[in-house]
Design a protein around this nucleic acid. Structure first.
Lengths: 190, 190
DNA sequence: GAAAGCATGTAAACCGTTACATGATTGG
DNA sequence: CCAATCATGTAACGGTTTACATGCTTTC
């Protein structure tokens, strides 16, 4: 009778609200400035989840007291919500589910054309080179404030994860392209 | 008016059927022995997708002619299906969507306990060390048959991707644990 | 003859995306 | 005043997972 699929995005919301109360719009901004790369969240998910979290007594809301700007609902985490967040943080992760479309295409390239996968791998490499630059910049900034707050350590480590894996993506892409181009003449249909 | 979400698993099915005709059960076995790590597929997805692909004229089926064993439906790809597969292989990939639950937990560990995330990172590392061994074994086998068939090159490159990224996962995990344990005494609540 | 596995499939639930919709506010 | 942005939300859809269901076959 366990849940069919666990909503993990709700913990993202609880996580941000545990730091300070804010609106759904604010949460979206925070996500985009931090965990977006490994956990994107959209409005279409945030607002319904906020609604459900409130029904479940995890959060409460009140009207914004700001004089200016459109009205906002400011959400606040409850004791129940905090307990739920902490319970989740304690729980072991069974498995990550990763899906790499590029690898599926590569796997089936025998049914297609070599030049197309080379192009796709090149795009892949460029995409992650861009992401890597951003992460390296972020990482440097975090490094200089590491001692200021415990949280910075955790943010820093997530950035390190990205840097390391993106490096290996790029390295793989370069080697794969080289490998494919070397072998290009080997087939009759080259 | 474009599709809300593209079904990519159908290309997995078309991809396998383009090599040879087989049953839904066979496809599941193939997936588990090859692309499972970067594109898992379950029966609950295979059978309905086969049904839909047949309705769309991408594949046909006939009864198995084997004398023994339960009856099977043997599916065969059509010209339309082949064209569809090739069209997809030509198409550029816009973005991968990756979700790392472990990074979300790490990011919010300030609301939890350091020992819990360390445990989770350790599990993460062990998981990928196991996967890495399997991949290295597979990679060696593929290396020895690289010249035999063009396809082996592509399978080989997908394995290389796994080896590289899993290596970086493991390296990151080790460094992260070390980093967290070094800083353990820094906080008052250590 | 019972248990394990082969082989097929359906139904329900849920997550997440996309598109759509609204209205207020700020800046030019 | 018009456009952009702030801020909130809903509806529809589709992908995927899980659980359930069936019946046959092989093995012990």
């Amino acid at each position: 009778m366990s849940k069919l699929k666990e909503n993990k995005t709700k913990y993202v919301i609880l996580g941000f609200l545990n730091h300070e109360k804010m609106s759904g719009y604010d949460i979206k901004q925070r996500v985009d400035n931090s965990i977006k790369m490994f956990w994107p969240v959209r409005y279409g998910q945030i607002y319904p989840t906020l609604k459900k979290l409130e029904q479940d007594g995890m959060i409460n809301h009140c009207k914004s007291t700001y004089e200016f700007g459109p009205e906002r609902k400011i959400y606040e985490i409850t004791k129940t919500g905090q307990a739920e967040l902490k319970k989740w943080l304690k729980k072991p992760i069974i498995k990550e589910d990763m899906r790499y479309e590029i690898l599926v295409k590569l796997f089936f390239t025998g049914s297609g054309e070599k030049k197309d996968i080379i192009k796709n791998i090149l795009d892949f490499k460029n995409r992650y080179q861009e992401q890597l630059s951003k992460l390296q910049y972020l990482s440097q900034n975090l490094e200089s404030v590491l001692g200021e707050h415990e949280d910075h350590q955790y943010f820093y480590l997530t950035a390190q994860f990205g840097i390391k894996t993106y490096h290996s993506y790029i390295e793989w892409a370069e080697q794969a392209i080289k490998f494919l181009e070397e072998k290009k003449g080997d087939e009759s249909n080259g």
